[in-house]
Design a protein around this nucleic acid. Structure first.
Ligand code: MN
Ligand code: MN
Ligand code: ZN
Ligand code: ZN
Lengths: 136, 136
DNA sequence: AATCTTCTTTAGAATAATTATAAACAACGA
DNA sequence: TCGTTGTTTATAATTATTCTAAAGAAGATT
């Protein structure tokens, strides 16, 4: 487990001070095999569970938004009372299991290229995201 | 303007009593040339402006959800603090102008068919929606 | 190492969208 | 008209998120 040093550097390179709290959040978010989807509350609980240390809710919000701004996290647009984030910041699409309130990644090849045949003067495309809602 | 009778029937057919408030909301939502996108607060203000009568915010919420449940309105998934609704309940996609916080319809032919090449056991696809975010 | 500056964390308050409550009211059917 | 049931409304409650300001920690300067 040598990730701690990497996270410290990553934070420094982002002009974010490597605090104990931020390093713990990095461990929970980025020290894992697969990317994952979470809400602030999910993360808040995971930190306690996985690191044994409590980080205040305000800090979780602050840090998630800092990481989001730096491009280390992505926000997923779905209708939910809570905001969903994704550690997979590449362009990709999602299933959303409405009943379980769970996001599942779709690879780009599972969807195929999407060509938008319309443009709005003065505006350019920032992202194209497909959301596939699932029911039983 | 003979729409009022139609709305009364529409409401009766949906086992919703045709109250003054609901008819006013129907006029604002459905008595127009083009479909449109709105938030609850947009609608609340439009009702006052267009009908001259005030409907309580609680009733606006109640009615929008009743219409949504009946399939007369669609919820658009975007990351916003407010929920966006659409009077266009057909399958279609959207631009979202992030700066202006405005939705713009995309015709299906502007996007092309989307074939999802992955399936989740026990689940079926309920909807496939594309959201194209726009920036300046 | 001591000091200074700047950034960060935190508890708690504030905000804002939405939902719940329950009493007054209106629509409907008998 | 009367009784029943559904609806509206003001207001309170809830909940996610943001704000505030004081205490603490990190980094730079001596
Ligand atoms: Mn994802
Ligand atoms: Mn639309
Ligand atoms: Zn953010
Ligand atoms: Zn609804």
């Amino acid at each position: 487990m040598n990730s701690k040093q990497e996270f410290i550097e990553k934070l420094r390179n982002s002009s974010l001070r490597p605090t104990k709290q931020r390093i713990n959040i990095c461990e929970v978010l980025f020290n894992r095999d697969k990317t994952f989807h979470f809400t602030i509350n999910d993360l808040f609980n995971l930190i306690k569970d996985k690191t044994g240390e409590k980080v205040s809710l305000a800090t979780v919000y602050n840090t998630v938004h800092a990481f989001h701004k730096k491009g280390y996290l992505k926000e997923i647009p779905i209708n939910s009372n809570q905001t969903y984030f994704d550690t997979n910041v590449t362009d990709h699409h999602h299933f959303f299991d409405v009943k379980e309130e769970k996001l599942i990644d779709l690879k780009n090849e599972d969807v195929g290229p999407i060509e938008i045949q319309k443009s709005i003067p003065g505006k350019k495309i920032k992202s194209v995201e497909v959301l596939v809602k699932l029911e039983d």
